[in-house]
C-alpha cells in the first residue's frame, strides 16, 4: 500500500466523514484524496485551533471528525484540546505529519518536532507512531474506535521516514 493511500483508506474504513485540514507538504496527497471524496465534508482552515472548534461542532451534529495537520499545528491548539476536548470528552482523530524527526532537512522544524510527543503527553492524549503503510492502516482504524469509545482525541504521528 502507498503511504498516503493507506491513511485515506483507513479514514474511509472507519467512516470518517468530516475533515478539516491545514497543509504540510507530506499531507498533500491525502488532502487531495479527501477533497475529491463526495462522502467527506472537507474544510480547509486558517489555523488548526479553529479546525478543532469546527470538528467539535461537527461531532455534536453527528459527524465523525478528523484533522489533517503538521505537528506545528498542535502548538496552535493546546488550549482548545484541554478546555474543549478534554473538558467535554470529545473524540477526534488527529493525523499529524511529524516534522523535525529523523531525516528532517530543515533545522527550523526540530524544536517543535521534539516538543510534540511531550505536548501530547502533557495533554494526556494517546498517540501512535506507525512506521509503515500497513501499520498505519491498522493503527488509524483502531485509533478512531478508541477516540469514540473513550471520548478523547487520539493522535497519529507520521514521521518523515513514513512517507
Amino acid at each position: 500500500m502507498e503511504s498516503s493511500q493507506a491513511v485515506y483508506e483507513a479514514l474511509k474504513e472507519v467512516g470518517i466523514n468530516f475533515i478539516v485540514s491545514l497543509p504540510c507538504v507530506n499531507l498533500g496527497k491525502v488532502m487531495e484524496l479527501v477533497e475529491c471524496d463526495p462522502e467527506i465534508i472537507h474544510v480547509p482552515v486558517t489555523r488548526e485551533e479553529e479546525g478543532f472548534g469546527i470538528c467539535a461542532g461537527a461531532y455534536l451534529g453527528g459527524k465523525k471528525p478528523a484533522i489533517l495537520m503538521q505537528n506545528s499545528g498542535l502548538g496552535n491548539s493546546v488550549n482548545v484540546l484541554a478546555s474543549l476536548y478534554e473538558l467535554y470528552h470529545l473524540p477526534i482523530l488527529m493525523v499529524m505529519s511529524h516534522r523535525g524527526t529523523e531525516g528532517e532537512f530543515m533545522n527550523a522544524q526540530v524544536p517543535m518536532g521534539k516538543a510534540t510527543p511531550r505536548v501530547l503527553e502533557a495533554l494526556e492524549i494517546p498517540y501512535y507512531n506507525p512506521k509503515t503503510p500497513e501499520d498505519a492502516f491498522e493503527v488509524i482504524k483502531n485509533a478512531w474506535n478508541q477516540a469514540q469509545s473513550n471520548g478523547t482525541p487520539v493522535g497519529i504521528l507520521l514521521d518523515i521516514s513514513y512517507w
Binding site: L60, G62, S83
Partner: peptide
C-alpha cells in the same frame, strides 16, 4: 450548548455544527 472554556471557538463550533446538520 454552553462553552466553559476555549475562548474564541464559539463561531467555529457553530460552523461545524451548521455544516453537520
Amino acid at each position: 450548548f454552553y462553552m466553559l472554556g476555549s475562548m474564541g471557538m464559539a463561531s467555529s463550533i457553530g460552523l461545524g455544527l451548521a455544516m453537520a446538520q
